[in-house]
Design a protein around this nucleic acid. Structure first.
Lengths: 338, 338
DNA sequence: CCGTTTTACTTAATCAGTTTAGAAAAACTG
DNA sequence: CAGTTTTTCTAAACTGATTAAGTAAAACGG
């Protein structure tokens, strides 16, 4: 019951601790007879080897540390839990424990770095973490890590697992065009990140491939806030600009806000304005009308990140960029024209 | 840079490892002069003591293990992340690391129990975990744990941190009554748990205190699913029962479903039907109309759980039940009568 | 049957710290 | 100034496992 050690098992079985260790780790050097006897004693006593000793000996913690960016507005934290579930599921299979840390804007790197230096994990998964100084610290000290769903600049040496936003953007725009829309606007984050540029390019490329013109007035480069999309729409209407028949938004959080603003202006959705976005956050299913969106497997984001990290930790080859493909999920925010 | 040990620091400072250990742990037995010199060397080398050795020596892991129930439907996983954030914030202050495990219905206890037996944590926080066999195992082995947001049966020896659902239910019903409603229905989980009974009692008590009659046809004891509330409403309408002017639902997830069903039947909300519930999940803000709900501090649930667990671990006194009080958050799903 | 290899098992070192017990030096005490 | 106490410091034991090195017995080969 209470605090057994490998020595107790050894004594009960009449063997050395080495023999017990061999049995525990399925190593050769023990006769079948002894092996069975030791196993029986382990089973009957319920002995489980102390994990800290094991970690100390092996110089590995068998733990993955998940660092999550905590957004002030809950709508931006939407799929962190699903990513964590995917991480956990994959870690469970591979025998890793999972620990986590939240960080936010006003965050001090030292406590986390100390924890890493103390060897508390074999590697890290950074979810939506963009802090370049932290990332370069990890790189300098060659600590294995993977960025997941992180809007960081892709540099050749940054392992990423993320949604294929170019594809999402391209497919969504194509979808709107195929539904008969020709006046298609774009609302997305304007911070100069490669990811945002890729997303924008998806829109541009789809418009070009369909022979449609992009009206600069319909392109909303906005900041990452819960009201920016609505503000953009308001400025469009207030400025008496012609409003396009459809908008592609780079995230459901933007769509939800756009929907709200448009309805406030008396627009009926989708009769007067069609909306497509990306993410399929839970909210998008429950707004009125439910949003058509590019959906993807959020758990896979986490699971893939673990797989990549596992390869890094073991010194195996790994893909520098892993893309999760989104697919269109048709609901009721798009009107078919003609 | 690479893998320093306490011996390296000792050598560099010209002292024993014992002295370095004393400095690291702010213990007496070292002169100020030596202490400063050792600290400088530690700072300049960036040495951080190995966490596993520390845990092995002290027989404690300084880690809290969060076990989360994973619901199939995402709407029921809504505030797990916020609870985790609260847990993390409190753990950070107290110097704990945090690890996590998800479990679901088809779940095998052995792997988790092994992990606990291997001393990977000092205590557990169970979020929405109800498995009685698991809980009694923990009790038998006197492993410190706290249930948070768990609809478990209160028995005298179960440490709980949860929302004051009785109060929520009472206040919400009172609110509807004060808005002029007399025909108030109830929709909540019917599984025979004390918590559900408490919630139901809150409704009953408020109705009685207001001198209002409870119509059995308006009381929906439903199961925990994403469509049960709508099903109940449909059966009410299809059975040509008189529909009350207002419903109290024990969770926003039920309200959202009820709202959907009522609108499908041509009811305008709140003109034809008022709805109040509890939880303030993100979705409830974005449905049309936004839901009036009893809101509470989700992060506090997690933070309080850590505080209670910390006291248990240290053998201090702790409150067996900690209640988080919800307050009404008025939005647009309730009509004021007269 | 004797020398070699294999098998089964153990002793002792090791991981990186903490802690006990004790020694030497310094600081009081009367 | 001798005796006691306090301070400063260290050697060695200890945490609970793994693993390298070594030994004795059994199996094998010619």
């Amino acid at each position: 019951m209470a605090n057994l050690t490998i020595r107790d098992i050894a004594r009960l079985a009449g063997v050395s601790t080495t023999a017990v260790s061999f049995v525990l780790n399925d190593k050769p050097g023990v006769s079948d007879e002894t092996r069975i006897r030791v196993k029986e004693i382990i089973a009957s006593t319920g002995f489980t080897p102390n994990v800290h000793t094991r970690r100390l000996n092996l110089g590995r913690s068998f733990t993955i540390h998940v660092v999550l960016y905590w957004h002030t507005h809950p709508i931006f934290n939407q799929f962190a839990l699903e990513i964590m579930y995917g991480i956990f599921a994959s870690c469970k299979k591979l025998g890793y424990s999972v620990m986590f840390t939240f960080i936010d804007r006003s965050w001090d790197v030292t406590q986390l770095m100390e924890s890493i230096h103390s060897k508390d994990c074999d590697g890290l998964i950074l979810s939506q973490v963009e802090d370049p100084s932290f990332i370069s610290l990890l790189q300098q000290e060659s600590i294995p890590f993977v960025c997941v769903d992180s809007h960081v600049k892709k540099n050749s040496s940054l392992p990423l697992v993320e949604v294929d936003y170019y594809q999402a953007s391209y497919d969504a725009t194509l979808y709107l065009a195929n539904m008969g829309h020709t006046d298609i606007g774009y609302i997305g984050s304007s911070t100069p990140h490669e990811l945002h540029e890729a997303t924008f390019n998806g829109y541009i490329d789809a418009m070009r491939d369909k022979g449609l013109a992009c009206n600069p007035a319909w392109i909303g480069g906005i900041e990452f806030s819960a009201s920016a999309a609505g503000d953009f729409f308001n400025s469009l209407v207030d400025g008496r600009f012609h409003v396009p028949s459809a908008f592609f938004c780079t995230g459901d959080a933007f769509s939800v806000d756009l929907l709200h603003a448009a309805k406030a202006h008396g627009y009926n959705i989708p009769e007067d304005l069609s909306i497509v976005s990306v993410d399929n956050i839970l909210v998008s299913r429950y707004v009125d009308p439910p949003l058509t969106t590019m959906s993807f497997d959020k758990e896979a984001l986490g699971a893939k990140a673990v797989d990549v990290l596992h390869s890094m930790i073991n010194g195996e080859d790994f893909p520098m960029t892993t893309l999760i493909k989104p697919v269109i999920l048709e609901r009721s925010s798009v009107k078919k024209l003609n």
